[in-house]
Design a protein around this nucleic acid. Sequence first.
DNA 1: TATTGTTATACTCTATAACTATA
DNA 2: TATAGTTATAGAGTATAACAATA
Lengths: 169, 169
Amino acid sequence: MEDWGLPDPLRGGAMGGNGHEPATAARRLAESTGWLLTDAAREITLKLEEALKGTGLRWRDYGVLVVLEADGPLSQQEIGRRLAVDRSTMVHVIDVLEQQGLVVRSRDRADRRAYSIELTGPGRTLLVEVLHPLTARVHSGVMARLTHEDRAHLNRILAQLAGGAPRPE
Amino acid sequence: MEDWGLPDPLRGGAMGGNGHEPATAARRLAESTGWLLTDAAREITLKLEEALKGTGLRWRDYGVLVVLEADGPLSQQEIGRRLAVDRSTMVHVIDVLEQQGLVVRSRDRADRRAYSIELTGPGRTLLVEVLHPLTARVHSGVMARLTHEDRAHLNRILAQLAGGAPRPE
DNA sequence: TATTGTTATACTCTATAACTATA
DNA sequence: TATAGTTATAGAGTATAACAATA
C-alpha cells in the first residue's frame, strides 16, 4: 500500500503484472531524480565557474559574499554552516576573499574567539556591478530552455526538496 | 531535521515590489537555481550513498549497472561517456564491479582494442532484488515532501535542463 | 594517424585532529 | 570543559599525459 510516488522504472521489475516494458538506461536514468539533479547541478556549476573565471573567484566564494551581503557580519563558522562548508575549509576561503579586499576580519567584541567577517565597500561594489550580473546571465542562459512558469516551479520545488520542508496539505 | 545550509537570503522572504531593495532576497531567489540544484543534489546523493553503504557499491557504480542492464554490453569508454566519467577513471570503476562478479570484461570481437562489458547473472539479480528497491526507497523518502504533480514536474523540468533540449514553443 | 584501455602521476578538494586563545 | 579559528596532514577523487595494442 505504500505509494513511493516514484518513477515506475525505479520500482524495480517487481510489479506483479507482466506489462514488462524493458526499461532503457536512458529512461531509467532520465526518471531518476537523483541522476537528473546531479547532472543539472554539474552543468550549471560548470557554467558558473567558467563565467567567474576572470574574477579570480569560485562559485562558492560568491556564495560567501551573497550571505554576507544579506546577513553579515557573521563568523567564519556561521558562514560555513550556511554553505555546508567545514570551518577548517572556511579559513582558506576567507583568506582569499580578504586578500582581495572583498571582506575584512575583525574580532567579535562579544566573543573574542570569533571573527566578525564583513563585506568591504569594494566587495559590495563587485557584487553589484560584476558578480550579480555575471551569475544572472548564466542562470538566464540555462533557464532560457524553460517556460517562465517552469522556472518558478523549479525553484519552488527545489527549495522544498533541499529545505526539508514537509509537503503542505 | 537536517539543515542543508541553504543561504537564508536565497530562500525567499520579503518581496519588495518597488525595485528599491538592494538586490537581495527577491532577485537573488529568482537567480539561485544553481544553489538550489547543488543543495538538492548533495542531499539526495548523501542519502543514496548512505543507503548503498552495505552493498559495497557507490551511487555511480549503480549507474554503471543500470546502463548495462538496459543497453549493455558496452565498452568502458561508452559507459563513461553516458555517466560523464573519464575513461581513466572508468578503469577503476569496472575493476571494482568485476571483482565483485557483477560484470565481466571480454574483448570486443569487432574492435579488439575495446572491452565488451557485460552484466553477469548475479549482477542482474543484485539490481532487481536489492539495488532498485533500495534506491527507490531513498527517492520516495525525498520525494514524499512533494505533491504527485510536483514530482512529475520536477523530473520533466530537470530533464529539459540537463538535456539541453530547447524549450518547445 | 587515431583510438581503447591502462598506468603513473599530480592536482584539487575536503575533512580530521591537534593546538591557541578565549569563553 | 567547551568553542572559534588555525594549521598540518592525510585521504578521496579526478584528470592529464604517456604507452601498448589495435584500428
